[in-house]
C-alpha cells in the first residue's frame, strides 16, 4: 500500500498528572476514512488538537504527506492540506455563508496583504466559494448570515470551509454533534459522497455514522489506542466491549 497521508507515532500529551494521549500510533491512508471512537474523556479532542496543530505534543511524531509537521503551527499545517472542522460550530457568525467560505478560499490564495480591492467582489474568491457551497447543498443559503443558519446548516458550513481549503486530509471532529437523527443521517450520506475524494479522520459519537462510513476504526480509552481494525473486527473485540461496559456501542449497530 502507498505511504499513509497521515502517520502518527508515539504521541504523548500530559496535562499535569493526567495522560491525555498515551503513546498513540495511528495512520490514515489515502482515500480512507479512519474513525476514532471512545467514551467521553477518552482524549479524542486532545488528539485532534495535536494533529491540527493547536496543541504541542510532549513526545511523538506527526508526519503528514511525507513531511514531519510535529513542530509546525496550525496555519502551516492547513497550508499543507490538513483541514479540520470543529466539534462546537466555529463559523464567522456575522458573515454570510458565502463570505465564510470565501475567507477559507482566500486563506489558500496567496498572501492577504492586498489592501485596496474589495474582497466581496473578488471573483477569484467568490466564484470558488459558490461552487463549494453548492457542493455541500447550501447554494440557496449563500447570503444568509451564518449566525442565522439552522444548526444543521451551520454544521454543513463547517465542512464547506474545510473543503474550501482543498485539503488532502479532512479532520472531522464530530460532524453530527448536536444533530437530530434526520440531520445526522443526511450528514452521513453527504460524507459518504466525499469518501472517494478525500482521506478523512473522523471523530464521531454517532455509531451509525461511524459504522456506515469508516474503513477502519481506532478505539481510544483513557488516551490509549486499545484497538484498531475494520468495523467488523472492532465490533467483535472484547477489550472494546469492556471499555464501553456493554452499553450502546457494538451490538446495537447492525
Amino acid at each position: 500500500m502507498a505511504e499513509p497521508i497521515l502517520a502518527v507515532s508515539g504521541l504523548v500529551k500530559r496535562f499535569g498528572g493526567v495522560v491525555a494521549t498515551d503513546n498513540v500510533h495511528f495512520d490514515v491512508t489515502r482515500g480512507e476514512i479512519h474513525a476514532v471512537i471512545g467514551p467521553n474523556g477518552a482524549g479524542k479532542t486532545t488528539f485532534v488538537a495535536q494533529i491540527a496543530g493547536q496543541l504541542r505534543p510532549d513526545a511523538g511524531r506527526i508526519v503528514f504527506a511525507g513531511e514531519d509537521v510535529t513542530r509546525l503551527s496550525g496555519p502551516q499545517r492547513s497550508q499543507r492540506g490538513l483541514a479540520r472542522s470543529f466539534q462546537i460550530t466555529s463559523v464567522f457568525r456575522d458573515l454570510s455563508a458565502l463570505a465564510n467560505v470565501a475567507l477559507a478560499i482566500q486563506a489558500h490564495a496567496g498572501h492577504s496583504f492586498r489592501l485596496w480591492r474589495r474582497a466581496d467582489r473578488d471573483a477569484a474568491l467568490v466564484e470558488p466559494a459558490r461552487a463549494v457551497l453548492a457542493d455541500v447543498g447550501l447554494a440557496a443559503r449563500a447570503h444568509v448570515k451564518s449566525g442565522n443558519l439552522a444548526h444543521g446548516e451551520q454544521r454543513q458550513l463547517e465542512i464547506a470551509m474545510a473543503l474550501a481549503t482543498r485539503p488532502k486530509l479532512l479532520l472531522l471532529d464530530e460532524p453530527t454533534a448536536g444533530m437530530g437523527a434526520e440531520d445526522s443521517e443526511r450528514m452521513t450520506a453527504f460524507l459518504a459522497t466525499l469518501k472517494s475524494r478525500y482521506a478523512m479522520l473522523l471523530i464521531e459519537h454517532d455509531m451509525n455514522a461511524v459504522f456506515a462510513l469508516a474503513d477502519r476504526i481506532t478505539v481510544l480509552v483513557y488516551g490509549r489506542a486499545i484497538a484498531t481494525g475494520t468495523p467488523e473486527a472492532i465490533r467483535g473485540n472484547d477489550a472494546v466491549r469492556a471499555a464501553y461496559l456493554g452499553d450502546d456501542m457494538p451490538d446495537r449497530v447492525a
Partner: peptide
C-alpha cells in the same frame, strides 16, 4: 473591505477558526 481587512475582522471574530483555515493571523 479588502482581503487584508477580512483577515483582521476574521481574527477578531474567531481567531481559532482563522488559524484552522490557514491564516497566520
Amino acid at each position: 473591505n479588502s482581503r487584508f481587512g477580512m483577515v483582521i475582522r476574521g481574527a477578531f471574530s474567531n481567531e481559532t477558526r482563522m488559524q484552522a483555515i490557514g491564516f497566520p493571523t
